[in-house]
Amino acid sequence: MSTYLNTRVSLFSSRLWQEEDFSALLETGHAEIAGVLAERGLPQLAAGFDSLDNRSLEQRIISQLLDETTVLIRPLAGSERNFLLYWTERFEIGNLKTLLRGKMTGERPAVLLTRLTPMGAFGRLDIQDLAHAEDVGELLRRLETSPYAEVVRPARRAFEESHDPFILDAALDRSYYEGLEHRAQPLEHAAGTSFRNLMGSLIDRINLVWLLRYRFNYNLPPAQVYFLLVASRYSLPSSQLRKLAALGSQREVLSALPESLRGLLDGVNEIPEVFARMEHSTVDSARKVLHAGAPAISRAFAYLILREHDLRAIRAVLRGRLLGLPAADIHMAMFHSGAGLT
């Protein structure tokens, strides 16, 4: 089965975009864009690419990713299948947050339903039922009997005590990524360094960006910041995160990072730049894994990371064009800022 998956990933990887593809898309005439997207295996984006509705574009990107994940998980079983399925659950967690925010602002169920991303066969929530909950409390109680109970339970408890939407979001995110790490653990033993590198790159980025944001943008106390981070066993283990959270300034935090991360973030001053550099590093790791003789599950995970990155970049190009930004500016923003796509 790993041969089949490897072949599938190799075939899929030919769909990934290079810098020149993005440049070509920038230069393509408006009338030809749909054709170019369809030709590159993105029929979902081709239809209605010129819609100003950003949400609908996002929904179609997710739909494309789910379609490709369906193909990749077909030969998988056990922990490998569980991991990739859980990876798609991020999108449903997004729906869950939309539902919660909708209930907080008293949105009508019908409006709320249109804002949710269709999850197709991956959907595990009864969204019709949930959208008709009367308030956040009822919604959270219902979610506790859903497959997301594990993620929602700590969030509900925290929210009930504080009624703070930020706490709810942060608790959901933390629970989700801890679940991801938990599911990755058996694969790290089986698939080895390549898989561990990808996970490490992902979790380290999340932890560092959250740490900086919570500590220096939201001014939360160190202990609370530490509690909000994902318990990690990669370059930034829990003991290190505790030390970093206790530091008094962003500069001190960045200087106290381990050598590998310090080199990567050399000269960076702003949190968005930290995010962009680290995302760039994740993409680089994913490319190496994809083109090296890594185990099939590592290559599949790397492909999904790269594909999502590509699709979001395509969305950026399309949005930039729709907003009437000059092609040179879009190109500059994509390839010569810290968020370089190559």
Binding site: R157, A158, S162, D164, A170, A171, L220, Q224
Partner: peptide, 14 residues
């Protein structure tokens, strides 16, 4: 104690 208050909320302390 002020530093701990937010942490308690976050942890679902009752």
């Amino acid at each position: 104690h002020d530093e701990v208050r937010g942490l308690l909320s976050q942890a679902g302390w009752r």
